[in-house]
Write a protein that binds this DNA or RNA. Structure first.
Lengths: 225, 225
DNA sequence: TGAATATGACTGACTGGTCAGTCATATTAT
DNA sequence: ATAATATGACTGACCAGTCAGTCATATTCA
């Protein structure tokens, strides 16, 4: 009987998510939305700095300049806040991914575009912290991992695969390695995200340069000696 | 309040001979060491499963079949236990890295060796969890990150760089990209470690195959089209 | 030899601080 | 006025860390 202790919660506090259902006034609506955003921004700061478990909602509230109770007007609990944060930060990317599949440029140009997109839209952005959070906390939030895989990763991978298959047929690729492992394209980017948080003080790393070096080799048209 | 008299230790009994040498009998010593190991093993399980902050020392004790107080006979506090765990798991690698620089085989062979070493000594091992822990918790334990960088990473990087420079001079490499970014060699391995914990249930990933595909391209001798 | 004594590894109930989540009260927009 | 919002003091579960006490083993001495 190594059972976990029963959680508290005597009644389902069905608020959180749908605080907008009632308020129709522009005034209130705007104010509420602003607060929600402030809370999300503060949450990102706190979760990024301390990790999910060690982050304190009192600190989130303080940072958002809001009372702790207010958080519970917008989010059901700490976990919902965390998951919502990830969702909100990533949803803009979902649409952007589709747009990526449209172009029809040669590989070397597309590669450059890809690096630029990654650095500008992720690495130099708060989304870098979001990616970090998904990877570091994802194991304990299977729902979150699934959401990320379904809504972002799988789509991104499928899009990239399509582009790569086209390139392969055009003879711009030496083999199907990248079609089988599109992960190789972003791998250096992900590594750089973690490196920057851990070892930059000892040995800084130039993401762009590393990603470019990687791409140059991945797109080489000759097999190894 | 019942006044319990403490009859312990009335007078120094001066045993003579080796009183100061302490009663570190082989018997007791062995037993204590076994306990320590059990605690470390349990700690690895718990920290891996829940992360540092959410892991409970009561659970570590239960899993190690030891009372909670016993943990504190071997480690100063939760953080020390964590850091010691990492140290103990990684120290065997410190020596192994030096041995790696000895060989003088051609790149393609060395590459295969590298993959094999990584998969056998890290990926298929509890060390995979240790690497994961360092990367996920490292930010909050700067001391740990520094230890890992100084004792493991920097040495590994330097060793690999030496081998790569040699290969470059031998004309086995197209450019100095790998010398500048040796991280590119392990990047797929690290990615696989995280992928396996997050997305394997949706789309499994063959580490060996991915690392090999990566190496094939990194060691290509011709520049891109 | 073995009874008496000493040792320190081990135990687990307990303490004190922490923090997620609640709710009675106060504030604000309509 | 009054419904919608916001507040922050409060509750109680939780857990790292403590320490008085136990017991198996080692040592001493008759």
């Amino acid at each position: 009987m190594t059972e976990k202790v029963r959680p508290r919660r005597k009644l389902a506090p069905r608020k959180g998510v749908a605080a907008a259902a009632a308020a129709r006034t522009p005034q209130r609506q705007a104010r509420a939305a602003a607060r929600r955003d402030a809370i999300l921004a503060a949450a990102l700061d706190e979760f990024s700095a301390k990790g999910f478990a060690a982050a304190r909602l009192d600190d989130v509230a303080k940072r958002a300049d809001v009372a702790k109770g207010t958080i519970y007007l917008h989010f059901a609990d700490k976990e919902s806040l965390f998951q919502e944060l990830i969702r909100v930060m990533l949803s803009p990317m979902i649409g952007a991914i589709a747009a990526l599949g449209a172009g029809d440029m040669p590989m070397n140009v597309l590669g450059e575009r890809f690096i630029d997109l990654f650095v500008r839209e992720v690495y130099d952005t708060r989304r870098r912290d979001v990616i970090r959070l998904i990877i570091t906390e994802g194991r304990r939030f299977p729902k979150l991992a699934e959401f990320y895989y379904r809504e972002v990763l799988s789509r991104l991978i499928e899009t990239v695969r399509t582009l790569l298959r086209r390139a392969l047929e055009r003879g711009e690729l030496a083999d199907d390695a990248l079609v089988r492992f599109p992960q190789l394209l972003v791998a250096p980017g992900i590594i750089a995200i973690f490196w920057s948080g851990l070892f930059d003080r000892f040995e800084p790393l130039d993401v762009r340069a590393m990603m470019r070096a990687n791409l140059d080799h991945l797109f080489a048209t000759r097999r190894p000696a």
